[in-house]
Design a binder for these strands. Structure first.
Length: 494
RNA sequence: GGCCCCAUGGUCAAGCGGCUAAGACGGCGCCCUCUCAAGGCGCAAUCACGAGUUCGAUUCUCGUUGGGGUCACCA
């Protein structure tokens, strides 16, 4: 059987990693078996429609590398793929159920429904009282003729229980009295989400329904619909939720449901923070799923590899926490393994901000690759190139490199004439500086430490002495070293 | 509150009756080293609790506790 899965988001304008992971698993499930992955936009709620939200969905999927075979933008044989464009399609199905006595018109007003809730015993949650379930033919006709607004409700079983099977959670049983006479068609003529969902999944030939575990307890309602129509129930795969971790000002950590409150769990928020789409996909693939067999213990996956390795048996039941630290590590792994062209392309915008010459791109790639986990860290790492001021001279007092202000003055005075005429080449500079240390019969660090600090003006730099000199260029390096030497001498004498 | 689901280190997690309870992130230590990384080596840290079943339970059953979800003319 050809597997057909679908991603069915609502255009609310925000796509967080939880939704994205659902889409990913739907995609992987289909592709693992050469199946078809469909995008369907569920916009039956006109009031909540957000302008431009659909484009965000397309853009997210495209950027993430999850491509749909059928959808509003790419077409397909089961369209239209936007529910609002399918509006006329649903009501006949509902009316068919009315005709068969499996559903009924309900004329109850909003006010009556509200008062039902208010008059309920304290604390109790009360559903619809099925007031219109057994209206007489006369009453129904009268209401219809007078134009009273109505909804169509499905008759749900009044007793017993419903059981269904889920590939992740096993058998789920729910008492039928938990099931309300659900609304199929709203007053505005639009179908409810539940109804449209079932009609669309069936008419689009969806074989595997994959969604978050928040649907676990409402699935019997969907099944009641499939049964009423005599349709096959799809295979269900419910996914554990992803939780977010937030830390407040006091340092208290709370774990809670992923939402906008966590701010940066939006896909494009993460992209803006410097995370790579491939790394995000790789990371969330492993949140709630564990590879097995030849892929066991593997952490880094391309999309192709995910498709091969993905297996529903590896999906876990318990919710997981989105861990930025691990994402960050993984992003760094992607950067380390990047080819030069990609690295430079990603880094270029940041290099341009610092007016870095293309001559240094190769050097920077080598220096930066092991040192950044996100490209957005580059300006911070290279700040010393643009910023140089009256830094603290105590930096020259460094026990580990056997340096002091005095040895630094000595080293810098000896280094200046050498650097002035040295070929400005990383290896050559390194050789010359080491030679200087050898001539003076001191450890390399006794000359390297002061030169690097004098030129950079900070203790921590990416790369070493020669690399700092290369990035600054001869002119700027000499200027800084001389300035620093003067200040050093002044501080010793004064 | 009713109903449903879940429960292995701080986090992601392997395990599917018998193991010194994998691996990864993070943490810590050592090595390397002109700083910071990277890399190498190592350490600490987990079966929520209580009853059963069994020769034997992390694993099976029940209960307790804790967490999550869900109860709309929202999706």
């Amino acid at each position: 059987m050809l597997i057909r899965t679908r991603f069915a988001p609502s255009p609310t304008g925000f796509m967080h990693v939880g939704n994205l992971r659902t889409a990913l698993y739907e995609y992987l499930t289909a592709k693992h078996d050469n199946g078809v992955f469909i995008l369907r936009i569920e916009d039956t709620d006109q009031e909540r429609y957000v302008e431009g939200a659909t484009d965000i969905i397309y853009k997210t999927l495209e950027t993430a590398g999850i491509s749909h075979d059928e959808g509003p933008d790419v077409g397909g044989d089961y369209g239209p793929y936007i529910q609002s464009e399918r509006k006329g399609l649903y009501k006949p199905y509902a009316e068919q159920l009315v005709k068969e006595g499996k559903a009924y018109y309900c004329f109850c007003s909003k006010e009556r429904l509200d008062s039902l809730k208010q008059n309920a015993p304290e604390g109790a949650v009360v559903g619809y009282d099925r007031h219109c379930r057994d209206l007489s033919e006369d009453e129904i006709r009268k209401n219809l003729e007078s134009g009273t607004p109505y909804v169509i409700r499905q008759k749900m079983p009044l007793s017993g229980e419903s059981t269904y099977h889920d590939l992740v959670y096993g058998d789920i049983t729910i008492p039928n009295d938990e099931l309300d006479d659900q609304i199929l068609i709203k007053t505005d003529g639009f179908p409810t989400y539940n109804f449209a969902n079932v009609i669309d999944d069936h008419t689009m030939g969806i074989t595997h329904v994959i969604r978050g575990s928040e649907y676990l307890s409402s699935t019997p309602k969907y099944n009641a619909l499939y049964e009423a129509f005599g349709w096959d129930i799809p295979t269900y795969i419910h996914l554990p939720l992803i939780n977010g971790k937030s830390v407040d000002d006091e340092g208290n950590v709370t774990i809670s449901k992923l939402s906008k409150r966590h701010g940066s769990t939006g896909f494009f928020d993460l992209i803006e923070e410097g995370f790579l789409p491939e790394a995000i996909i790789n990371y969330i693939a492993l949140l709630g799923w564990c590879p097995a067999g030849e892929y066991e213990n593997r952490e880094i996956f391309t999309m192709e590899e995910l498709i091969k390795a993905f297996d529903i048996n590896g999906i876990s039941k318990s919710p997981s926490v989105f861990d930025y630290d691990k994402l960050e590590w993984m992003n760094g792994e992607y950067i380390k393994n990047m080819d030069s062209e990609s690295f430079i392309r990603n880094a270029k915008p940041f290099f341009d901000e610092l007016d870095i010459s293309a001559d240094n791109y190769g050097l920077l790639e080598e220096i930066l690759k092991p040192r950044i986990t996100r490209f957005t860290e580059i300006p911070g790492k290279l700040a010393f190139i643009k910023e140089f001021g009256e830094f603290d001279l105590e930096l020259f007092e460094h026990k580990k490199s056997k340096s002091s202000k005095e040895t630094s003055v000595d080293a810098l005075e000896a280094a200046i004439p050498i650097l002035e005429s040295a070929p400005w080449d990383r290896d050559k500079l390194n050789d010359l500086i080491k030679q200087l240390a050898a001539d003076k019969e001191v450890k390399n660090s006794v000359v390297m430490w002061p030169i690097r600090i004098a030129a950079a003006g900070v203790a921590v730099t990416p790369g070493g002495c020669a690399e700092v000199l290369m990035l600054l260029g001869r002119e700027e390096s000499m200027k800084r070293i001389r300035t620093t030497l003067d200040r050093l001498k002044g501080s010793i004498n004064g």
